[in-house]
Simulated assay, not measured.
Amino acid sequence: MRKNLLMIIAALSLATVAFATESQIWGEMRIQNILEYGKEGSTHLGPLFTLLQNKYFAWIFLGVLIGVPLAFYIHYLIIGPKVFPHSAKKYYAFNLYNRIIHQVAAISFLVIIPTGFIIVFGDFFGGGTFVRMAKNLHGIFTIPFTIVVIPMALMWLKEALFNMDDVKWFMILGGYLSKEKKPILAGKFNAGQKMWYWVAILGGITMILSGAFMFFLDFKMQMLHDLTGLSQIDMLRAAAIIHNVMGFAIVAMFITHVYMSMFAIKGAVHSIITGYVEEEEVKILHSTWYKKLRDQGKF
């Protein structure tokens, strides 16, 4: 199954490169078409886009890139990680399908996010080949994420629905501000994981659509033009604004997800690699789910 999935992703990647090579959106007609943008039907998003692009977007991304890890570094120094033995009884919680889908999405994000920062700070890196390579990788690794985003949404939708346990979790921030190991009300996914699920799925789909619109910037969709009344150039500007704003949330939540799974909870990342979760970790961090599993004789 994994081999077939990788073959599909590789085939789609090659098809995308071939399409881009042959299409006029990457050829000589591109410049000619761009010169016509904004001459008719423009709602003049240009000044707003220019203001945001030149004065705010890069600084906000820099703030997220520095501020979020710094906050977690301080948390690690003051509170420290929660450590569980990982030698006690385990439960097989994530099957092979779950793990492959998650790993494809994870690898995609690990390329998309750094290359996205290189694109944002292209001037700092001096532009040229390095930034163009980052732009191409950014687009190519969007393909595997596009393939798995809907399967990932469907396979974890039920566990990602919010309930009253999540309200109580938010009130104490999941117990992460305390060194004590007290049982926390949470199902298979806690409120933080659910929040990341919705940002990754809805935000990811938004990023795919807005990014594709910018990537294939001369690909006109008449239905959208008729529906919104926006000119092609203003649709591109709107897509860029949406892409950047959504990017703030996704980057912040992705860093949070990485910190929680690799540092704040020692060994937690192994569950999505091996499929097994450790009993004490589930008992403390997902007590509602633990009670359900215990009643079923799983623990």
Rank of each mutant, 00 (worst) to 15 (best):
A10I: 10
A11R: 04
L12G: 11
L14Y: 07
V17T: 11
W26Y: 15
E28Y: 10
I31L: 15
I31R: 15
N33Y: 08
E36H: 07
G38N: 07
K39N: 02
G41F: 12
L45N: 07
G46T: 12
P47V: 07
P47L: 13
T50E: 12
L51T: 14
Y56D: 00
A71K: 02
G80T: 00
A88T: 13
Y91T: 11
Y92M: 09
F94G: 06
N98W: 12
R99K: 08
I100C: 10
H102L: 06
F109I: 15
F117Q: 09
F117L: 15
F121S: 10
F124M: 12
G128K: 11
F130G: 08
V131L: 00
R132D: 15
A134W: 12
K135M: 15
G139Y: 15
F145S: 01
W156N: 09
L161D: 00
L161T: 02
M164R: 13
D166C: 02
V167K: 08
W169M: 02
M171E: 12
G174L: 00
Y176G: 01
E180Q: 14
E180Y: 06
G192A: 05
Q193H: 02
K194D: 00
I201F: 05
L202H: 00
T206M: 13
T206P: 02
M207C: 12
M207F: 05
M214E: 12
F215T: 06
F216V: 12
F216S: 14
L217K: 15
L227T: 15
L230V: 01
I233P: 04
D234N: 11
M235F: 13
A238L: 09
A239K: 07
A240V: 00
A240M: 01
A240W: 02
V245T: 09
A252H: 03
M253K: 01
T256E: 11
Y259P: 06
Y259R: 03
I265K: 02
H270L: 11
H270S: 14
S271A: 14
E278L: 13
K291L: 08
R294P: 01
